[in-house]
């Protein structure tokens, strides 16, 4: 089936089998392999991407269901080669080891901090509890998000401080 997606700001058209998941479509049809697949049953969160502004598990969505949607993956998180503020914070706070959970963590975190730039530690832990990491024990990831919040602060919230 012909499917149109806006991926990281680019319009792409793919011809896919109806049973193909969005995760596999991104990875194998579009060769955007930054999105990872850890379980294919919606638990680990490694496949999380942003679809129309919402963090979504791309292993639970069929590519054809995303027809017309606007998609952001880890490859589109920062412009060009530089790291964005969230990625920089992950690096500074050692928020990753093997890196396999990282793209899903980043996209979930990005969606959260965009919506709630002042999210508390408890809120961060609650929202990201749906993303599993087997390496880090999560401490560095939480610190990274807390640190990255300032980069997401809206102008009025900045003034308020």
């Amino acid at each position: 089936m012909r499917t149109t997606l806006h991926v990281n700001g680019k319009l792409v058209e793919v011809d896919v089998e109806p049973r193909l998941t969005l995760a596999d479509c991104l990875r194998h049809e579009l060769r955007l392999t930054g999105t990872h697949v850890g379980c294919e049953h919606g638990v680990c969160g490694a496949c999380t991407i942003i679809v129309d502004g919402q963090a979504v598990r791309s292993c639970l969505v069929l590519a054809v269901q995303a027809d017309g949607a606007s998609i952001q993956t880890v490859e589109g998180l920062a412009g060009g080669d530089a790291l964005g503020p969230l990625q920089t914070a992950f690096r500074r706070h050692h928020g990753l080891q093997c890196g396999f959970c990282t793209p899903g963590m980043l996209m979930t975190a990005h969606a959260l901090l965009q919506a709630e730039p002042e999210a508390s530690e408890a809120r961060i832990r609650e929202v990201l509890s749906g993303n599993l990491c087997r390496c880090t024990g999560y401490v560095g990831i939480v610190k990274a998000l807390l640190d990255a919040r300032s980069a997401y602060a809206r102008p009025h919230t900045r003034e308020a401080r």
């Binding site: 392999t33 930054g34 998180l77 790291l83 992950f90 980043l106």
Partner: peptide, 21 residues
């Protein structure tokens, strides 16, 4: 020292086995 490998992992440029073309 900040990790060198992070630069690829944070940008989705790791090459895990299923990523090999």
């Amino acid at each position: 020292i900040e990790r060198l490998e992070d630069l690829r992992f944070l940008r989705g440029r790791g090459q895990y086995v299923d990523d090999l073309e």
